Simulated scan of single mutants.
Amino acid sequence: MMAFLREATKKHKLVQERKEYLIDFLIDHEVYEAPDGRQLYELPLVELERMYIVLRCQIGREMN
């Protein structure tokens, strides 16, 4: 049981670190909220990842 809790805590920490990275990246590129008006910190990881991918694709297209 303790191993399960340690693993769950580790995964939660990794998710939080990834969310922080994505939020920082989005803010650095002047994205402050989701298209529906929610603040970035309110979004689940999957939505932040989607916004990140869309922005990276947009940046890539602008480089061409």
Rank of each mutant, 00 (worst) to 15 (best):
A8C: 08
R6W: 01
L5W: 06
E20Q: 12
L26W: 00
L5V: 05
E7W: 04
F4G: 04
L55M: 12
E42I: 01
M51G: 04
R6S: 09
F25N: 09
E33Y: 03
K11W: 00
E30H: 13
I53K: 12
K19N: 09
I27D: 05
R38L: 07
L43A: 03
K10S: 09
L14M: 05
I23E: 10
E42M: 07
F25R: 07
F4D: 14
Y52Q: 03
H12V: 11
Y32M: 04
L40Y: 12
D24Q: 02
N64S: 13
V31Y: 08
G60S: 14
V15I: 15
E42R: 01
R6A: 06
R56F: 05
M2W: 11
K13W: 03
T9C: 00
K11M: 13
A34K: 09
L22N: 10
V15C: 07
Y21I: 04
D36C: 15
E62S: 12
H29D: 07
K19L: 06
L14P: 01
R38V: 06
A3Q: 08
H29C: 03
F25T: 05
T9K: 10
L45K: 11
E30K: 09
M1H: 11
H29G: 01
E62Q: 15
P35I: 11
E20L: 07
F25P: 00
D24K: 08
C57R: 13
R38Y: 04
L26P: 13
R56H: 00
L14D: 08
Q39V: 07
Q58D: 11
F25G: 06
E49I: 00
V31D: 12
L43C: 03
R38S: 10
L55Y: 07
E20W: 05
V31P: 04
L14W: 06
E47C: 01
V15T: 14
L22F: 12
E42W: 03
V15G: 04
R18F: 09
R38T: 11
L5C: 08
E17W: 05
F25M: 01
E17Y: 02
G37Q: 02
M63P: 07
L14I: 02
E17M: 13
E62K: 14
K11D: 12
Q58R: 14
I27F: 04
E33F: 05
L55H: 07
G37L: 02
L40H: 08
G60D: 10
P35D: 15
E49C: 06
K11A: 12
E33P: 08
A8G: 07
I27T: 11
Y21S: 08
R38C: 00
L14K: 14
L45R: 06
L40R: 02
E7T: 06
V46D: 05
E62L: 11
A3T: 00
G60Y: 15
L48C: 04
V54G: 01
F25Q: 00
E49V: 08
I27S: 03
E30S: 01
Q39R: 10
F4A: 11
R18D: 08
A8V: 04
K10D: 10
V31L: 11
I53P: 06
V46G: 02
V31E: 10
R6C: 01
R56D: 09
M1T: 12
E42Q: 15
L22D: 06
A8S: 14
I27G: 04
V54L: 15
Q16L: 05
I59S: 00
V15Q: 13
R61I: 06
E49H: 07
